[in-house]
Every structure is written in structure tokens, then in C-alpha cells.
Amino acid sequence: MDAAAHESHDAHGHDHHHDPRLAHHFEDHQHQFDTGKLGIWLFLGQELLFFGGLFCAYSIYRGLHPEVFEEGAKFLNTNLGAVNTVVLLFSSLTAAWSVRAAQLNNKKGLILAIVLTIGCAFGFLGIKYVEYSHKLHEGVFWGQSFHPTREILEEAHVTPGVVPMPAEDGSVDPKAEKIAMLKPNLHTFFSIYFMMTGLHGIHVIAGILVYLWILRRAIRGDFNSEYYGPVDFTALYWHLVDLVWIYLFPLLYLIH
């Protein structure tokens, strides 16, 4: 803190700030911005550990039972996954763009970038919904609820084998034609799949909510080149959500 700031403190007490967006315990906007940025990075750090637990479960089960994952991945639609990756990457671009627009005092650009980001987020969730509903409809649940139907087993080209194919109603007749060799504990793949993508989806929803709030503030004209911290921090969070997906896509959809 320089001497001038000291004097101004002494002269006016604690209410010498005229900008309500600058909290009273910070020296200036730069100080507030740097502190906020440190805070959001710490938050992202804990997010990483949070997802880390799931990645740990993933690596252990895949490392020990790769065949389960190979078979499980056949149930996933790689094309939809790839499209979703592109959608999310594009939303990251627009999120980064929103920061640039705020820095340049470009209010229209800022609003447009945020709207595009939110739009992509909804697009992502829409595609996810298509994927989920297809699976759940065909009995591809997690853990104990995993009872895939005949259609989806055929659709997924699961290896022919010795385990009887379940009938239309899901019941298993030991004398039925033996074509589907379901790997033991195949449901574990879907437990992990639904946990990872579900938790990621919750983060997308949270991101949408935060972005709606940022949008409201942007329309109100809160942000300018001096004060744009919230835009930047939300974008950082959004990039992290993208980052997690960058790994989820090959780990779940691209299994050889």
C-alpha cells in the first residue's frame, strides 16, 4: 500500500471507495481481481481432486478388468460423444471470447459470447439426454439395475458366447440361444460411466446457472475493462468442465 492510499484511508475512514464493486478490504481493483483469481484456481484445484476419485476408480477397474471396459464401450455411441466434444470445445471458445469482450468494454460481444456459451451448454445436455434415455430405455443401468435388453445387446455387437441371451421381457431362459457373452460385472462399467458423466453433467448445469447470473449482470452493464473478474472466473470454471470432458471422451467412448 503506498503512502497516498494511507492518507486517503486516514482522511475518509473506511468508506472512501466510490465504486461499490470494490470490496472495502481490497486496495484496488487489481488486488481484488488477483485475489479472486487465486480463489477460483484453488476451487478448480479441489474440483480436480473431486473428479480424481472417480478417475481413480476408473483406472483401477479398467486396469484390472480391461475386457469389461472394451465390452462396455460398445454400448456407447462414439459419434454422439465426438459431436458433444466439439460442442463443448466451441463453448470453451465462446467463454474465452467473453473474457476478451469484457476486457475490451465490448458489451454486445460479451452478451453474445455468453448466450452462445449457454446455448452450447444446453446443446451438450440435449445430446447427453438422447444418449441417456436410449440406454435407460434399453435397461442399460448402473450396478444392480443393469438388465440390458436384447435389442441393445445386438445393437452393441456384443461378442457371441456361452451366456444365454435374455428374452424380450428380460427373463433369462438357460435353454435359450447362447449368443451373448456378457462379461462378469459389466455393470461396473456403467456404474462408472453414469457417475462420471452424471457428475460432469451436474457441473454443466451449475455452469449454466452461473452463466445466467453473469448474463444478467452483463446486460445490466456491470462489467468493463477494469472490473470483469466474475466473467473471467466463470470462464475458468467452464474451461475446467471442458477439461474433464476432454479426458472423459477418450476414456469412455474410445476404448479399443
Binding site: G143, Q144, H187, T188, I192
Partner: peptide, 9 residues
């Protein structure tokens, strides 16, 4: 989730 839905992890 394990308890509620039988996740199996």
C-alpha cells in the same frame, strides 16, 4: 449412490 441405487463400486 451405492446405498441408494446399488452402484457396485
Amino acid at each position: 449412490v451405492e446405498r441408494a441405487f446399488g452402484l457396485g463400486i
